[in-house]
Simulated scan of single mutants.
Amino acid sequence: MFLELIATVFAGLAAAGIVLGLNKGLKGRLPKWSLPVAAGAAMLASTISSEYSWFPRTKSSLPEGLEIVQTVDGSAFYRPWTLLKPFTERFAALDTVSISSHAAQPDMQMADLYFYGRWAPVSKLAVLADCATGRRAALADAIKFHDDGTVSGAEWVRPDAGDPILTKICKR
């Protein structure tokens, strides 16, 4: 966040420098308002560029085995450009390498799910999927695993058909 602020300030300074150079070359013929308008426009363009490039940059830097399963696009009235084209502000990625199951319960799959947000730290959630019944549960302290691979204490949720998280976990 701090580096983006610095980049925005430098974009404004660069635009102001270019307008100053042009004005000097044109012997002062540019209107006085051109310098702050150019600086402001460059800062706005830098901010917009940063917003729209966050998801592709983050996606390209994901380690191998992490697959994006869900994205959330956002828009706001105070960012009018997002009303025309919303941008991805957060997403969930499944660690396919971490998918595991108990030999006695092959339909029960366990995996790690990571949540990324534009201005938020990455958070991790272990998820248990019951592929036979189409339900999943977040792993919490109350869950107990038994020797035969069964689970007790899970708070199961039954997501809509085609849930991307459940589909990806049960795909293997």
Rank of each mutant, 00 (worst) to 15 (best):
V72N: 13
A16S: 12
P106L: 14
S100Q: 11
D163L: 04
V9Q: 01
L113H: 00
A76G: 13
S75P: 01
S53D: 11
R136P: 01
G17H: 03
A126V: 11
P159W: 01
L84H: 07
R57M: 15
A137D: 06
S100L: 09
V19K: 00
I143D: 02
R136E: 02
S60R: 15
C131D: 06
V97I: 15
T47A: 04
I143H: 04
V37W: 09
Y52P: 00
T150P: 03
M43P: 04
L26V: 09
A104L: 11
A161L: 11
L66M: 12
D112Y: 06
K171H: 12
S34N: 06
T167D: 13
P63E: 08
N23Q: 09
V122I: 15
L94C: 03
L22E: 03
T167I: 07
A154N: 07
A92R: 06
H146F: 10
A132P: 04
K144G: 05
A111D: 04
V122P: 04
M43N: 03
R57E: 12
K85N: 09
V97L: 05
T82R: 02
F55C: 00
W54S: 01
M110V: 14
D148P: 09
S49T: 10
F55G: 00
R90N: 14
G117A: 10
P63Q: 13
V97M: 13
R79I: 09
G40F: 11
L62Y: 03
A14S: 11
A76T: 04
R57V: 15
W156H: 04
P164D: 08
I68H: 02
S46E: 09
A154Y: 02
A93H: 00
V69P: 02
C131P: 04
A16P: 05
P159C: 00
Q105E: 12
Q109V: 11
P63C: 05
D107H: 15
V9R: 07
G74K: 09
R79T: 11
G28M: 14
Y78R: 15
L139F: 10
S100I: 08
P80W: 10
E67S: 06
D163A: 09
P106I: 14
R135K: 12
A16I: 01
L94G: 00
T96L: 08
V69D: 04
D95V: 00
L166K: 01
I143M: 10
G117N: 06
V151N: 03
S152N: 07
T88K: 04
L3N: 11
A42K: 01
C170E: 04
P36Y: 12
F77V: 11
G12Y: 02
P121I: 05
D130M: 05
G28D: 07
T167C: 12
L30V: 07
K124N: 03
D130Y: 02
H102Y: 08
K24Q: 15
E155P: 05
Y52V: 02
K171C: 12
A129H: 05
F55D: 00
L66E: 03
S34F: 12
D160S: 13
P106A: 13
R57T: 14
R79V: 11
L94I: 07
Y116M: 02
A103Q: 12
A38S: 08
V9D: 01
K85E: 13
A132V: 05
P121A: 12
T8G: 08
D107T: 13
E64Y: 15
G40E: 09
A140V: 15
E4A: 09
Q105H: 06
P106E: 07
F10D: 06
G17R: 03
G17D: 04
